[in-house]
Design a protein around this nucleic acid. Structure first.
Lengths: 196, 196
DNA sequence: CATAAAAACAAGCAAGCGCTTGGTTGTCAA
DNA sequence: TTGACAACCAAGCGCTTGCTTGTTTTTATG
């Protein structure tokens, strides 16, 4: 998300700075083990000052997850824009998701997977609605397209979940500085779930 | 793990009872959000009494993860025992892992995936060593066997990680009471990672 | 330069946390 | 019956937590 988009979403530069630091800490130690004093210190302010920007600690997490979700949605839409072949769309989306996890978003995508339990139900629903409205829409369109051409091994919804799991787990083993490139990894995944 | 095996591992019935309740709570709220008072109340004792059985809160988590890892290892070994065809071994292991997640272990397998960060490094290494010694050994044997016959789509190590991710994620969407059976789900996974 | 709003500080409260202590109860072998 | 030990209770200590309050500093605007 660029600066103007952030402003439109009601996120001041100060908020964005705090969230960025918070995300690193959440990734490192988890939401619960990260104290507001940790976040404040990382941002260079005192802990009480955080509550001038956020009404409570959880709102920091919500803001982070909402921002990440928006960003991933925008990038997914950009990735499939202008591609009509659903197989190519799928490939683009796989690379896009891997990039979000291992490159663009730093640790934000990790937090998005790990910290659902720390969000209250209302916030959780808001983030999920955000995700379904753009990111998941792209995925299901591509997968349905592949399925209509008989190229998908599993039903689209099952394929989506299996792929999502395989991709999310890469954060536990894949290293960008190893022998396997991101594109290579994306190929392995694509080949697994599409018919030859 | 049966009662005798538990005793051999130094786990009294009281400990096992506490761990079982703790696992449910860890699954529900996470390790950090679960207090020793919660665990004690669920077991029907006072919080201080927990420390007669465990030297601290983290040891409860470690015991849970070690028990689960041992149990999954035993079941994996039993699942492939007597099977020589590596493809059949792989199928058996996939069903085995799905069963651990969705059936036998209640919520223990969830905790095993989610709460690594709450474990200190020494305990983490112990659990990992336990896992590599039996559970992962079974998996790699089966996958290497498939690969030697040219049946695997990806290199064995990559396949293992992709499969693990796909399976672990099922806990976020798969329901045992839905239309898709565990065996059916296992077939979907098998078909994805093996050549036709 | 004056003024108001935004941002940060300084200090600390109330609640909840993991864990300790010292004593009581229950169990069972000798 | 007695002694020994494990299991548990009752009480609370010391510390950390998220958050509040009242004040001061910084920044932006006319």
């Amino acid at each position: 998300m660029n600066k103007q988009a952030l402003r439109d979403a009601g996120i001041s530069p100060a908020k964005a700075r705090i969230v960025a630091k918070a995300v690193d800490l959440f990734h490192e130690k988890g939401f619960e083990r990260t104290t507001v004093r940790d976040i404040a210190a990382a941002t260079g302010i005192l802990s009480g000052s955080l509550f001038h920007h956020f009404k409570n600690k959880q709102e920091i997490l919500y803001t982070a997850m909402a921002m990440t979700t928006r960003g991933m949605g925008e990038r997914a839409e950009a990735a499939v824009a202008g591609i009509s072949n659903p197989v190519e769309q799928l490939k683009a989306l796989i690379i896009c998701e891997l990039s979000s996890i291992h490159r663009e978003d730093g640790h934000a995508a990790y937090v998005l997977v790990d910290e659902w339990r720390s969000l209250d139900e209302a916030s959780r629903d808001k983030v999920l609605a955000l995700r379904d409205g753009s990111y998941e829409k792209c995925w299901m369109a591509a997968l349905d397209g592949c399925d209509e051409q008989g190229l998908l091994k599993s039903p689209p919804k099952i394929a989506r979940q299996l792929i999502r799991g395989a991709l999310a787990w890469t954060r536990n083993w894949y290293r960008t500085d190893g022998d396997l490139t991101l594109a290579g990894l994306a190929d392995e995944v694509t080949n697994s779930f599409l018919k030859p």
